[in-house]
Structures are given as structure tokens and as C-alpha cells.
């Protein structure tokens, strides 16, 4: 199976964060596990880590803190 592109995983992660926003807080490992399940072989922790980095560095997602660290949408995206 061919390797999954980081951008593709990042996009799927973003969709997941968006669809659960306000309902469930997701940690990086929650996203990673969901992506490995979605993409199967070819997607691994390393790719997911890069995808998270891409979402954060681009400003599409940010880290939040509610007694633990989560990945969420920036305030402007939800206003």
C-alpha cells in the first residue's frame, strides 16, 4: 500500500476536529488513533505527528488547555 500524504491526513484530522467541536475534546493521540483506523496501513504515528504540526503551524488548529492539552479550532473559526 502506498504511503499516505501528510496533507491528506491533516485534512482528515481537520474535518474530525471540526465535526466534534464543542462536543468532544480531542487529544493528539485521539486524532492519531482515528487516522490510523481511517487510513489503515501506510498511516502511522510519525505521519500523524507531522499532520498535527502542519495544522498547528498553519494556524488552522490551536492547542487548548482544559485540565489537559487538546487540539481545537481557533476562536475566529467558530465565531
Amino acid at each position: 500500500m502506498s504511503e499516505i500524504a501528510v496533507a491528506q491526513v491533516a485534512e482528515a484530522m481537520y474535518d474530525l476536529v471540526k465535526s466534534t467541536h464543542g462536543k468532544k475534546n480531542l487529544k493528539p493521540m485521539d486524532l492519531t488513533k482515528a487516522m490510523i483506523e481511517q487510513f489503515g496501513e501506510g498511516c502511522d504515528k510519525q505521519i500523524c505527528k507531522q499532520a498535527i504540526r502542519e495544522l498547528i503551524d498553519s494556524g488552522r488548529c490551536i492547542y487548548s488547555y482544559v485540565g489537559g492539552s487538546y487540539i481545537t479550532l481557533p476562536p475566529t473559526a467558530t465565531a
Binding site: 490551536i62 482544559v66 485540565g67 481545537t72 481557533p74
Partner: peptide, 16 residues
Amino acid sequence: HGGLVGVMGYGGGVIG
């Protein structure tokens, strides 16, 4: 406490 503050790209180091 808590919230969404931080420097761009980091999730740690600043506590709201």
C-alpha cells in the same frame, strides 16, 4: 484559568 493562549505553534509555555 485555562483557555486558548499560547505562542504560535506551541501548546505549552504560556498559562492562561
